[in-house]
């Protein structure tokens, strides 16, 4: 996890800067990193709000991106022990990286390793966000310094990491097409949520 922490710190800092450029209060983005602790959904919420998509669209888009944590959590559920509150708190440290590095999805999953990595990443993520949010206060327009292009590039990188099989590629292509078609027809934010309909192509292959 050691090499991961500076990277997560730097990514948190870029999130903080992007958020401030989108007129998101510093305290709000720091609070979001501490509670939501899931990068792609945070960027999605901030960018949908910044594009004028409204609260409902921003929330739905962000939560849809985090739906994957239900099946991910189920793969490791058996290793959690103790009271409901203890399990609830520990479950918050399950993120993509801590899950994968601790052997998530295999019989070797180690909850203590996951908690150590997840805790370290949480500190780096929240600290990085705070640094970026405070430094980024001088930027007040996403197009300044090309930050609007940075949002797009970041989403591309997050997408690329998801393209591990044909199903995912199909979903991405159909989702992109839906967004392109709907952008001129619907208010901002709607194309993002409507893109979820891409999973319907999955129904056909029974």
């Amino acid at each position: 996890m050691a090499p991961l922490m500076p990277a997560v710190l730097a990514l948190g800092a870029s999130l903080g800067v992007l958020a401030r450029a989108s007129d998101f209060p510093a305290a709000a983005v720091i609070a979001m990193s501490a509670t939501t602790f899931a990068g792609s959904s945070q960027v999605a919420a901030i960018s949908v709000l910044g594009a004028g998509g409204g609260v409902a669209a921003a929330v739905v888009a962000a939560l849809l991106l985090n739906v994957r944590y239900a099946p991910i959590g189920i793969t490791v559920a058996q290793s959690f022990r103790g009271s409901v509150w203890r399990r609830l708190a520990q479950a918050q440290l399950v993120v993509d990286e801590s899950w994968a590095l601790a052997g998530g999805g295999t019989v070797r999953f180690d909850r203590r390793v996951m908690l150590g990595i997840g805790g370290g990443l949480w500190v780096a993520w929240v600290g990085g966000t705070a640094i970026g949010a405070l430094l980024g206060g001088v930027v007040n327009d996403p197009s300044a310094f090309g930050l609007d292009g940075a949002f797009a590039a970041l989403f591309f990188a997050l997408l690329f990491a998801q393209l591990s099989n044909r199903r995912a590629v199909t979903a991405a292509v159909v989702g992109a097409a839906i967004a392109a078609v709907l952008t001129p027809l619907t208010p901002p934010g709607v194309p993002i949520i409507a893109a979820t309909a891409a999973v319907l192509v999955g129904w056909k292959r029974v």
Binding site: S40, R68, A70, A176, I178, P188
Partner: peptide, 20 residues
């Protein structure tokens, strides 16, 4: 099906953040 949600949304965000 749940595993297809994230790529669909991220691809849509690439499109809107780039072209909208």
């Amino acid at each position: 099906l749940l595993s297809m949600v994230a790529p669909a949304i991220l691809a849509a965000l690439v499109v809107t953040e780039t072209f909208a």
